[in-house]
């Protein structure tokens, strides 16, 4: 069975690009447009990885990371945070929240896949 990844971003462009890249590499991709939506999409379904943007309406990416970390089913699911330009502050905030790692936007498809390989079991 192919691995499932949930891509969370309020920008459709970003979702499309992440999804396109991952599907091309054989992943199954779920999409959500903000943190709350992501939690709804997740439900109790097992996913192998969550990739989330930080700045989103309703529930931002860091709150989502915290929610995932305290979730009975998903607490050990890796979560990658999408940040722009290697912003050290954002990275450490992400880590504090419990993120597994980060991807710096804009990313090349290969880079995204490389990072995904690094955290996706």
């Amino acid at each position: 069975m192919s691995k499932r990844i949930l891509a969370v971003d309020d920008s459709k462009t970003m979702r499309d690009m992440v999804s396109f890249t991952l599907k091309g590499a054989g992943f199954e991709v779920l999409e959500a447009h903000d943190g709350q939506h992501a939690l709804t999409v997740l439900g109790d379904e097992k996913v192998n990885l969550v990739i989330t943007d930080v700045n989103m309406p309703n529930m931002d990416g860091l709150s989502l990371v915290r929610a995932v970390r305290s979730h009975p089913v998903h607490r050990s699911t890796p979560v990658l945070v999408l940040t722009t330009e290697g912003d050290a502050a954002k990275k450490s905030e992400g880590r504090e929240a419990g993120a597994t790692g980060w991807i710096v936007k804009p990313f090349a498809p290969e880079k995204l896949l490389q990072v995904v390989q690094k955290v996706c079991v």
Partner: peptide
């Protein structure tokens, strides 16, 4: 303010992707 920030942020991110 958050919403304004997000709008500009999203534009920037996309713009980056397309260089």
């Amino acid at each position: 303010l958050n919403s304004i920030f997000r709008a500009v942020h999203s534009i920037k991110a996309g713009a980056g992707a397309f260089q």
